[in-house]
Write a protein that binds this DNA or RNA. Structure first.
Lengths: 194, 194, 194, 194
DNA sequence: CATGAATGAGTTTTCATTCAT
DNA sequence: CATGAATGAAAACTCATTCAT
């Protein structure tokens, strides 16, 4: 029933990003999103099942595009070390380039109800898979230690990047996120110890 | 106006933990918490300003006790390396011992509105300060590298632990969290590289 | 403006009968009727003023045809007693032959709003007139008692048939409606008393 | 959860009757009923599950009281013939005494959705049982013919009364309903034939 | 003649909070 | 101190109808 494609589909998703970023998740009413998208309230329901579907679709479209970009970029990078650098760089670059999107995916959408968060979690799994592959390649190529647990390493990489972006937003995006790439990569690769 | 102390104060906070853990943040109505605490709805407003105050107080009481425990424990540990081990161990042990509390602080309370999350953030700062001190001590003692950025390292440590606990809950607390201490510490100290 | 005639006019009315019978009055949206009739939503408004007009026209077409049939049939029956028998028989036969139509006119259309029900009432008047004439003829011919009130008798005849058809539908049309003709006629003519 | 009893319970039901009678089923919003009952909108949900529950409860309370009255009255009447007279008389008297209630139960509530109508149908069954018993007693006492079908006779009695009340309301309650008792009883007992 | 995308008005229900007892 | 009945504001969604093509 819902079209899930077309000019207005994109307009509504982008309007949702702007409205949620500006007013916050709990003040992002359907009518506000509709007005921002220059469509009638009812039009939203021609393109989406319901409000939750708008939010999940938003995450899916934006995160899906990001993951595809990352996958494509990494496929051109030979060394797992450089792949990891590229992964962090793209993660930060992408969110730094669109602070509104960062606020929405990093802060606001996490307030959504369980059903929405579950869908979002599923989408994120694909990204975690990308991280896993970089780690596994690193081990296979003899660059990373064989005794590390892939899941532990993945949680370190994703958890650190996630926490870093959240901190950055909470500090009003005042500093450069991409400046964090090298120090973070260095920590990941070499750890704290002398 | 709000008493913020007494037998019923604790009863309400503990009831809130149980209700939120069982029904989720969005289904944890004041009347449900009151019933669980065996008090009348109105009684909650004798001990707390409003519902948000219950949530913030809950986090404050539980997290405050945890941070004090951590501070006390670390003061008895000489080496920063062992302090870091102890920090991770206590973090995991504490949440593993009380899965309901883990669900509430780790998952449910993050769906709360900005005002509550801001308060929670302030409480967390004290914990982040504890982590910072361990890192700084490690550098001072010549155990950790001098060229690492304390904030970057802190975000790695906190972000990784946070992501790990969240994953553990999402997987229904099926495995042992404390088993993760040593591999994680190893990663923090030595990194991924051979 | 509305054409009120043509191939699609009939197609829409018959589609409306099917949709209302299947989904019920409250789930019979214009778009559903349009799809069932293989026309676009807007096309309905080329043949009908509005949705209410579809419903009223439906009743008018179906009931009008029925009343004409009854009038023609009765004109060939000499005795008012046999006319009454024929009236009941045709009433039951007609609805028994088209259970969908029976459901729509007997159950679903009665949930419509006052304006539609009023129109339906006007159409029904013609049928009540037919009943009246049978009664009056019966009295004139000395077959029926002179002291009966025509309107009371008419309400008995119509009310009983109506209630009988409704019961039959509510019982899923499980038994034969036309089997009820003779016992009902007998009750009408001779009453309950020994 | 819903209290289903108390002063306000009755106030809300009676307010619903007045509002539905005055504005019609489709214009009887919860807020209008609340205002008429001098309570807040939310108060209605302390006494009823939802709006449908108000309507079903309305019918249940009013019809239930009526049926009890009829049962009690008939138990003091020895002859089935007089029981039938009393049944018709009470049916008409009750609705004539409260034209608003008559409009609501006879006209407006029949526009309600299937779920509500189903509940109403169940309540009506008890009344149909009362009619059945009168007929059966009449047969047993040798006053009514043994060859009549109880269900056919019941549909005649109920259908005729129902149609009569509906006609009366449609004619704006201009004439006396109770004047119809004797002619109707006569028709039921003796039929149309000379 | 026919289409079907777009419109936008309108209503039930929840639940944090109050305050008379 | 404690109660719990009462309050009332606030928002997602449907669907009959229009009109540019």
């Amino acid at each position: 029933m819902a079209k899930r494609t077309g000019e207005k589909y994109d307009a509504i998703i982008n309007a949702a990003v702007r409205v949620i970023a500006q007013y916050g998740y709990h003040q992002a009413q359907v009518s506000k999103i509709a007005r921002e998208a220059n469509v009638a309230d009812g039009t939203i329901y021609l393109y989406f099942e319901n409000k939750d579907d708008v939010l999940v679709s938003l995450f899916n479209e934006k995160m899906g595009a990001f993951i595809s970009d990352v996958e494509k970029a990494l496929s051109n990078v030979p060394s797992p070390v450089n792949q990891l650098r590229e992964l962090i760089r793209l993660h930060f670059e992408y969110l730094q380039a669109d602070a509104q999107l960062a606020i929405v995916t990093q802060i606001e959408l996490r307030q959504s109800k369980p059903a929405v968060r579950k869908e979002i979690g599923l989408i994120l799994k694909r990204y975690l898979g990308v991280i896993d592959r970089v780690i596994q390649d690193g081990i296979k190529d003899g660059l990373f230690r064989e005794d590390i647990d892939v899941r532990t390493a993945r949680r370190m990489i994703f958890g650190t990047m996630d926490e870093t972006v959240t901190s950055w937003i909470m500090k009003d995006c005042k500093y450069s996120l991409t400046d964090q790439v090298e120090p973070m990569l260095d920590l990941f690769l070499n750890g704290l110890s002398k």
